[in-house]
Amino acid sequence: MLHRFANPTRFLRLANAVLPWATGLTILLIGAGLYFAFGASPADYQQGETVRIMYIHVPSAWMAMFAYAFIAVASAVGLIWKHPVAHVCALAAAPIGACFTLICLTTGSLWGKPMWGTWWVWDARLTSVLVLFFLYLGFIALANAFDDAARGEKASAILALIGAVNLPIIKFSVDWWNTLHQPASISRIDMPAVHTSMLIPLLLMAVGFTMLFTVLVIIRARAELADRRINALRSARIHAETAHSGA
């Protein structure tokens, strides 16, 4: 199954078929999420209206981690099976993950000030998410740091795999250390500690963001594949002209 989509043409055929559906679902789910977030969910009994920041902060945090896990898996596939499309998908996902991490950090800060009385603390959760943001930037910088794209791919893929150790640290930081950040409220063994009226917009936004991520990975992967084809054609042209002038 995985090997079938190592072929860029086959991958593009599937991606182009998925794109309109994913775009429609993105608009629908985020639209419904916004309606429930602002119109059909109550204020929190303790946090008041600031709870509405949760509907953007928490899905962004989930996406920040999901995008990095996606990059790590794609990088592993690219390194082990030499799938060119896997590296392309990892490169396409990196700026998207970085943007979600940036949103998570800024909205968290904006939520922290009225609720905790501070914009930032160097606790384990906040610091590990900041490290995740720098890992994204490092991945993007390393992938573009080499003239030979294949070397950049390999180096950035290794960084992505090493950096993946940060994901469980982020997830369990609130359990392993004393943090100002609260522990998990949704992904618990027992029932989520969030009321259904707040869980609905949260999940709608989360699934909507996952669809947006899919759309953006497809768009950016198409751009990357086109770029590679352009470079290949340019190289072929230069090669042909050199051979012609040599003859």
Binding site: I53, I56, L110, P114
Partner: peptide
Amino acid sequence: GFIWSSWGIA
């Protein structure tokens, strides 16, 4: 201010 800034930045 905090709520709209969060959504605005996103």
